[in-house]
Simulated assay, not measured.
Amino acid sequence: MDASAQGHFVTLPDGLHLHYLDIGNGEPVIFIHGSGPGASGHSNFKQNYPVFAAAGYRTIVPDLPGYGASDKPDTLYTLDFFVAALSGLLDALDIQQCVLVGNSLGGAIAIKLALDQPQRVSRLVLMAPGGLMEKEQYYLQMEGIQKMGAAFAKGELHDAGGMRRLLALQLFDESLISDETVNERVAVVRQQPVCVLSTMQVPNMTSHLDELQCPILGFWGMNDKFCPVSGAQTMMQHCQNIRFVLLSECGHWVMVEHRELFNGECLAFFEEARS
Rank of each mutant, 00 (worst) to 15 (best):
D74P: 06
N183M: 14
E174P: 06
A53F: 11
Q96E: 14
F219T: 00
F270Q: 05
V99M: 11
F172C: 04
G26W: 09
L166I: 05
L90C: 03
H158W: 12
A151W: 00
R58C: 09
A151N: 00
L157F: 07
K112M: 11
N25D: 14
A5K: 02
A3M: 13
N204H: 09
I216V: 09
E143C: 00
V196E: 01
L105Q: 13
V125G: 01
N223M: 08
S35E: 10
K112Q: 15
G88H: 03
H238Y: 07
G107K: 01
P50K: 11
Q233C: 00
C98T: 08
S70F: 05
S43E: 13
G155F: 05
A187Y: 00
S122I: 04
A53D: 09
E260L: 12
P50I: 06
H17Q: 15
L176N: 11
H8R: 14
G15C: 09
P129G: 02
E211H: 15
T78L: 11
V61T: 11
S4G: 05
V83H: 04
R243D: 01
C239M: 13
G24T: 10
M133Q: 11
M142C: 10
H158Y: 14
C250F: 03
Q119G: 13
L93I: 00
D71Y: 04
T199Q: 07
L12K: 03
Q233A: 15
L212S: 06
P50F: 06
Y57M: 00
V229M: 03
P203K: 09
G162E: 08
V245T: 01
Q233S: 13
R243Y: 02
Y139G: 13
I177V: 11
G162K: 02
L169S: 08
C214Q: 12
R58S: 01
H238I: 10
D94Y: 09
I145T: 04
A53R: 11
P228T: 03
I23Q: 15
Y77W: 07
L115D: 12
G24L: 01
G264I: 04
E257N: 04
F262G: 11
D71M: 00
S230R: 11
V186G: 13
Q137D: 13
M255R: 06
F269T: 04
L261K: 02
E156Q: 13
E260S: 14
R243G: 07
T59P: 09
A168G: 15
V10M: 07
C227E: 10
I30V: 14
R274A: 14
